[in-house]
Amino acid sequence: QRLKVEDALSYLDQVKLQFGNQPQVYNDFLDIMKEFKSQSIDTPGVISRVSQLFKGHPDLIMGFNTFLPPGYKIEVQT
């Protein structure tokens, strides 16, 4: 199923809320996405950065996985 802009906004809100006391994490996530948009980093690069940034937050990682193309997935560490 195709995700919409509303889903992206909702996900960004989720990240912002979860790191309400660590706004730098939210800003880092926005920076990663901007680097991807400008093609400074590719999909595997995004996956590497996001998996480090959201380590210990499996719900955010699983939410992020829904935006990844087929064949890509961040494994959740339990």
Binding site: A8, L9, L12, L30, K37, V46, F67, L68, Y72
Partner: peptide, 21 residues
């Protein structure tokens, strides 16, 4: 690019960042 939904998320993030959100 083979990741249209990730591009969409990146576009939304860029707009959000631009708004200072």
């Amino acid at each position: 690019l083979p990741a249209p939904q990730l591009v969409m998320l990146a576009n939304v993030a860029a707009v959000t960042a631009g708004e200072g959100g």
